[in-house]
């Protein structure tokens, strides 16, 4: 099982890293999440999910503030992750807090769509 500090991605145009804060995880994304980032995200998010369950996390913050763009393939990775949280027993569910940057205009609609997909699990902050 991974420790949070082992969960990272560093590509030319995209990076992600995870740190633990008590019983929360913070997933920070930056750069450009396009096709080049898809496989890495598909590997990373299930590991974040596993780590969140391992530490009985109450919340995972996902920091989008430095993410320039996310394509629909990467967006789907988040949809799958959120769906898997929703499939957990209620006692094992954790919340996701999405941190957004109002200057990245795409985030308003994309993160709103994610929130509406699982309104009990997701909150959005800017």
């Amino acid at each position: 099982m991974s420790a949070a500090s082992d969960l990272s991605v560093a590509l030319r145009d995209f990076s992600a890293n995870v740190r633990a804060e008590g019983r929360s995880l913070v997933l920070r994304l930056s750069g450009n999440a396009d096709m080049a980032a898809k496989d890495s995200l598909d590997t990373l998010l299930p590991r974040v999910h596993a780590e969140a369950q391992r530490i009985s996390a109450t919340e995972v913050q996902v920091d989008f503030r430095n993410l320039e763009f996310m394509n629909s393939s990467c967006f789907k990775s988040f949809v799958t992750w959120i769906s898997e949280i929703g499939d957990l027993e209620r006692s094992k569910e954790y919340k996701i807090r999405l941190l957004s940057n109002p200057e990245m205009h795409w985030q308003r609609r994309s993160l709103h769509a994610l929130r509406c997909f699982a309104v009990d699990l997701i909150s959005v902050e800017s």
Binding site: N71, S72, S73, F75, K76, V79, T80, I82, S83, W106, R109, S110, A113, F117
Partner: peptide
């Protein structure tokens, strides 16, 4: 489309739908 996409193993099926919505 998002609910359906969550269970897909290949592709997202979201691109065109996202263009229309977002």
């Amino acid at each position: 489309a998002m609910a359906r996409s969550a269970k897909r193993k290949v592709g997202s099926g979201l691109g065109l739908v996202r263009v229309r919505a977002e």
